[in-house]
Amino acid sequence: MIKIIRNFARRVFSGIFKKKGEVKLGFYGSPNAGKTSLANAICQDWLGEDLGTVSKVPHETREIQVKEKVVIEKDGKKVEFKLIDTPGIATKIDFEDFLKFGMKKKEAQGRAKEATQGIIESIKWLDDMDAVIVLIDASINPYSQVNITILGNLAARKIPVLVVANKIDLKKADIKKVQGAFPEYEVVGISAKTGDNMEEFYEELFKLIKKAK
């Protein structure tokens, strides 16, 4: 309850004192799509530090993580944004899934509870975003209702979007399938893990932030 009030107050006050030109860039997607990996890659490239921890266990990020004042540069021009990494959105959570990763029952139940709260928070924050990067795991079927729902909500709110097909270093990855699933969006393929194609990603990110201003 205290957490909800605290987050609500933070959002109200950040709205009142919002600096002109400040862009809030959200990272959205299913669990394990690579949101925190990409957020970390950006923070490492431009700030020299990580944002959050990455894990193979789903729902590692269960709270909104914010990095203020990220500045990226291209051709002598700079853009600044606030980076907001959100917990992965899912439609179901079974604590027993966490047991497979060696967790004890109580720990798994606690993680499941936190994950449900994280998903609710992610959805609530959608209204606050000025631009969003939707991360899609290019190695699995992109036609998931979570991806469709996120993109549908962003379109309804007229929030600029960049679709990022992540994990292109994997054999199974298929960017064309992601492009085919969401033909109305700009799709850029990257590997947040290996750093593949980050140059093109930063070019698209630069355009996205400009669009949101």
């Binding site: 959105i89 499941a112 449900t116």
Partner: peptide
């Protein structure tokens, strides 16, 4: 619908 479902889990 997703928010509602998450609230009901547990």
């Amino acid at each position: 619908l997703i928010e509602n479902s998450m609230t009901l889990i547990g």
